[in-house]
Design a protein around this nucleic acid. Sequence first.
RNA 1: GCCGGUGUGGCGAAAUGGCAGACGCACAGGACUUAAAAUCCUGGGACCGUAAAAAGUCGUGUCGGUUCGAGUCCGACCACCGGCACCA
Length: 966
Amino acid sequence: MFTRNVMPSGRRQYPFHLIEPKWQQSWDFQQTFRAFNPGDEIPHGHPFAQRHELGGWKLSTSELPPKYYILDMFPYPSGAGLHVGHPEGYTATDILARYKRAQGFHVLHPMGWDAFGLPAEQYAIKTGQHPRQTTESNIANFKRQIKSLGFSYDWTREVNTTDPNYFKWTQWIFLKLYNSWFNPATNKAEPIETVAYPPELSGRGAELESARRTHRDSQRLAYVTDAPVWWCEQLGTVLANEEVIDGKSEVGGFPVIRKPMRQWMLRITAYAERLLKDLDTIDWNHSLKEMQRNWIGRSEGAEVQFQISNFKFQFTVFTTRPDTLFGATYMVLAPEHELVEQIITSEQRAAVQAYKAEVARKSDLERTELAKEKTGVFTGGYAVNPVNGEKIPIWIADYVLVSYGTGAIMAVPAHDTRDFEFATKFNLPVVQVVQPPDPNIDWRGFVDDGTSVNSTGPEISITGLPTAAAKEKIGAWLESKGLGRRTVNYKLRDWLFSRQRYWGEPFPIVWKRDANGNVFHEALPESALPLLPPSLTDFKPTVTGEPPLARAEVWVNLPDGLQRETNTMPQWAGSCWYYLRYLDAQNTSAFVGKEAEQYWMGTASSKLQVESCRLDAAATNPATCNLQPATKSTTPGVDLYVGGTEHAVLHLLYARFWHKVLFDLECVSTPEPFFKLVNQGLILGEDGQKMSKSRGNVVNPDDILKEYGADAFRLYEMFLGPLEMVKPWNTKGVEGVYRFLGRVWRLFVDEQSETAFEQAETTTDICSRGCGSAADSRAFTSATTRLLKLIKLSSAIEDKQPTPAQLKALHACIKKVTEDMEGMRFNTAISAMMVFINEAMTWETKPVTVLRDFLILLQPFAPHIAEELWEKMNIQHPTSNIQHPAGLAYAPWPTFDPALLVEDTLEIPVQVNGKLRDVIRIRLDASPAEIEAAARASEKVKPFLDGKTVKKVIVVPKKLVNLVVG
RNA sequence: GCCGGUGUGGCGAAAUGGCAGACGCACAGGACUUAAAAUCCUGGGACCGUAAAAAGUCGUGUCGGUUCGAGUCCGACCACCGGCACCA
């Protein structure tokens, strides 16, 4: 005989399976977490209205409480559903959102979907199912999963990048870019109409008209050019850089080749300097800023012109070391440099052509991979060194890139590693021009700063100057002679903005032909937006390699002979500005309303005050900690943005770029979008490896939720370790926090009533989480409510004055949790709550006020159980609820009283020669002399002092005593 | 190669320059139970001791330094993770 109905993992610690859906429904129904824009009417019954006494008002920006905008990187809703990495960041932001609400901030905490992109399109090509269908069902699944975690999002602001009401504005912003240029004089974007034309283009006539158009188009922030792109034959599509890994397609691992195609580009390079400089104004973590700095890759140097021997023309090189000009013993052009054809001598022609052909066969990747061994060919041409008139040979080599600088270098083998390698291989002369500061260091291959030597010519000498001064002097000389200029170069390239795909935003652009047959592009008017993609059944690119949109002939070919652009925008487009749409998601007349933008981005100040505690104020003067001027706490931009490092460069750089353009055009009011940014660390599988389907170590949140509930899941994700760290998942570890919630539950509830509840539950037929219909959910709600009412609070909870020990435990907990909240140290905040509960378990009577404050602390982390217990407290101890009419989600965050934390006596360690020998208990106000005496008196310490003299005594009051003996 | 980050018990981790290992997992022992699960209590870095303790010694990747005192600060190195990579 054996029983079959034993639960696989034992008895449930508490009825989270009823509590969690109950409160999620309640929050949904009440719109508890809705945020209000300036001008919105705030309903009377809303808890936010009750907390701030604003019911029935329509408030202007300056009358609303101070904002706090806390943002998650919105997910791409894949078919695989959520994995445990997503909720890590989402839990952290949710905890802070709830904390800030409790502090009295007006919190904006939205969520949405980044839903354009390749997977849905690939799936469509395979199955013929329209990407919209896949996208919709994936979103539904993601939303269900995210909602089941109890996050406090304002769902009225949900955005979806594939919704025409959304991408209308993505297209609108593209038009802004298209219709603007970057004016270097003002260092900002301006309307394209302000472009000045060179004098030779003025005048009437079709030719000049066309020339002016070409000039204008070449200045736009969005422009067209022929650029090589990754083409994958097997997938029949063009791939983005990030979709190509080690020369193969990320999907399927097929080979890819570089193929030149007409592309739309965005002129992000114009913003390189501002993108770099403004990093100093924002609060991002150090390594992330470094990544952006490296990506932008600013380097200061000089452009120097070299005359070509026996020819009229000259060419320009970029160098960061103009001070080494006297050491240039040869020149190198990139093989693709346009001058190569003109300077090769007949005897070198064959060799140069062969080399160029060889290089052209290699992809960029192979060129860098084969970097070990330098290759190159002499062109036969010579250049003249402007400082000393020496003739030096011009080579071509693929270690010089046509896309960086001027595509040409002066080679100084003595002081550049690559040039040195090359010169060694091809037996080119090496001339010292820099003396290392340390004479023992070999000058050959010395690339750092030193002192110039052998650097004297007929007109200029820098011999004897340190590197910095030498650079300065020669730079000035070159400029005065018109031979060069000091300049700055960037690694950053313009942004390739078009994709040959179906599932993306169509460009609001048409192509025309003028009277002379010149093809040109023109923007659609704003009124034509949104421009919807055509409906297709075949989503593959055409046989000619044209984008899939070209299949829709009726859509492409307009009646008046115009043709639509068939490229689409990349996935980044929608994610570049979604944080702005959240501010005013329903606006049909603007991408974001001005008032809403200024309020939420913190450029309009609010008058009301945060009635909560600032730590520093509380620590020094608890009496004044309840009122802080709000204007000090508003931050320009998103207050906190949390997401993964994978977006460290591209998304975050692109979004900053768009934001700056919009700022220049006065569409937004802050120069930077994200004031503070935190990366959550990756969660690895239980085996310590990156989670992946192929390794079979993926943890599905649904399984954890079923077994332990959302509160335990949230708690565990935070208890794992510091947010920014990489850390392995361990399902066993969930048990720990789950047991903690069980202890919280048992601390509050009466055991007998729970037994009654359990009996009633087994005889009640309620369908669990996931039941579909409205009727089902109503039945669930009423059954749940009825059942949960059977559970009563423990009789040990009494409306009594807390003891000093109880107050001390509570206030220590408040202090620790509050401080850790500010520092986003959620793991240690949770451990502080565990410490509190472990102690509270031992109390015979539990004062209502103490437990109430604890629930407010617990609420951000484990909101469902906290709400349920809070509700029971309100029913059974209603009188103490008077000060919190708004409900738990808006109950004021408790403040701690430092006076309650001090003790009369404390233990301090006694060291002899820095080694711990005893711990003594001493009065708090004991003088140093008393402490020393007590330390010397210790029986454990005495043997270490015997026969020795005490040479020095260090007494750190309240900390330790150290006796130094000799 | 360059830039950034991280190295602490069996494991996840914690420690304003001041008692290393809070909190939790796993483990062991005990209580409760007919039994198990759950729960509650107790223990725990290593070494050396001891009947058991106590005492003692060592211990935060390695080596050195500053300091009365270093996981923490400084210097050199090693390992792992992430990013960039012929950027002139």
